[in-house]
Every structure is written in C-alpha cells, then in structure tokens.
C-alpha cells in the first residue's frame, strides 16, 4: 500500500493526532474517561496504522524490536517500582499516600506513574503481537 497517495496523506495527517489523543487519554485519565490501558492501545493503533501504510520493515526501523521488548518489561517494572517506592518511603506496598508530604498529591503521583507503567506495557505487547503476525505473513509490505 506504499504507493497509495490518499492513504499516505491521510496517514500523515492523522497519526500525529492519534498519538496526541493517546497522550490526552493517558494524562487526562484522572479527570475524564481513559487511562493507561486505553492510551497504550491507542499508541499501538497509531503505529500499526503507520505500519499498514508504509510496511512493517519501515516501521521496525522507527520503532525497533528491542525498544518494543524493553517497553514490554519496563512497564511492569515501573508499576512494581511505584510499589517499592511506597515501601522505601515507609508505607505499605503500593501505598501512594506516603509518596508526597501531602497525601492527596502522593495519590496523584502514584496513580500517574502506575498509569505510565500500564500504558508502556500494553502498547509494547500490542505492537509486539502485530510485529509477530505481520512478519510471519510477509504480505503486509
């Protein structure tokens, strides 16, 4: 589909907004609908959209496999790290109240990093699954 002008132009117009919307869903999840899981999926969807237009090989140069696999693991580590941070500050595991002198701010900080972890893992897994399927079929590009 590399030579389809309409797809290329639409993709170029839409993908930045898809990624921006993912960030909005991620960081506005405290106030509106959304959160880490949805944001991760939307990020992955944006990149998969790019891969559908430009082929998996091109996408792998931009978002390489090692980055995706690192995202896969580091998301869980961020989440578990927030829990450990709670322990270090003298609270229980995954206790956000101690993360800041102001307990409410501590909660916000904890939720923020937890959501970042979830989004990282989810988008990593989705991209990895897509890469796996696409590279096996070989007909995507």
């Amino acid at each position: 589909m590399k030579n389809d002008l309409v797809l290329r132009v639409i993709g170029k117009l839409l993908i930045p907004f898809i990624l921006l919307f993912a960030l909005y869903v991620q960081f506005h999840g405290d106030f509106g609908p959304g959160g880490g899981f949805q944001a991760g999926v939307i990020i992955a969807a944006g990149i998969i959209f790019y891969a559908l237009i430009h082929g998996v090989a091109t996408t792998r140069r931009i978002v390489p496999d090692c980055l995706v696999e690192t995202m896969l693991a580091s998301g869980v580590l961020i989440y578990a790290g927030v829990g450990l941070a709670g322990l270090l500050f003298g609270g229980n595991y995954l206790d956000y109240f101690v993360l800041d002198p102001n307990p409410v701010l501590g909660q916000h900080r904890g939720i923020f990093w937890v959501e970042v972890g979830v989004a990282t893992t989810v988008s990593g897994v989705m991209l990895k699954i897509y890469y796996m399927f696409a590279s096996r079929s070989g007909s995507e590009d």
Partner: peptide, 17 residues
C-alpha cells in the same frame, strides 16, 4: 479521599492497585 475526579481511575489505580 484520593481526590481524583474519575472514580474509575481511582478505583483501578489506587484502591485496587
């Protein structure tokens, strides 16, 4: 007590961490 307007996020990330 978490003071996050979206209760779903509060439950998912904090109460049910």
């Amino acid at each position: 007590e978490v003071d996050v307007p979206n209760v779903v996020t509060a439950v998912l990330a904090s109460f049910r961490g």
